[in-house]
Amino acid sequence: MSFINYLSREINCKIVYYGPGLCGKTTNLQYIYNKTNPEAKGKMISLATETERTLFFDFLPLSLGEIRGFRTRFHLYTVPGQVFYDASRKLILKGVDGVVFVADSQIDRMDANVESLENLRTNLAEQGYSLDKLPYVVQYNKRDLPSVATLEEMRALLNPSQNVDFEAVATTGVGVFDTLKAVAKLVLTELRRGGGG
């Protein structure tokens, strides 16, 4: 749920990167962080285990510029992907304005992608949200690796309703900003419609 502040003339929106463990969610945020001007970003926070697996969430506040005199600020979050962190994932979805589903393109991760997407739907439904109504973008990550599924296969499996989608290599930044811009755009468009609930 976005937060409009008439006094500081700011609009704050929350975007969550969802997906199976190790698909590249944290890498997306790290790339965005590294490529953003210092004045447009806050500190990136990672609550991670000693082996750098996301424990609770990563958080990156970003300022994208002004619309009609309002500064647009996006709070990017990632969820921990491991199955046993489901309770944490639910918490992070609270108040979400837009979702990016990051899929791992490797063939042997397709089951994990499908499971994570179902988990996303379930957890959103528990909060009274529906993926079909939320601003939502799909990213097929790790396109650089050798044994990946084809784009057509991934679309059929993970994006049958043809939401906006991108191929990506988060480690080198391919598709990372395209994904962010697309979801930010959908969130702002939703605000115009007076949604943003």
């Binding site: 409009i4 609009i11 619309i67 009609r68 755009k185 468009t189 115009r192 007076g194």
Partner: peptide, 19 residues
């Protein structure tokens, strides 16, 4: 109570990303 964003255009949104 209308949101100040009710009137924004596609152009406004695109401009945000043209840098």
């Amino acid at each position: 109570r209308d949101s100040p964003f009710a009137e924004i255009t596609d152009e406004d949104i695109d401009n945000l990303f043209n840098d």
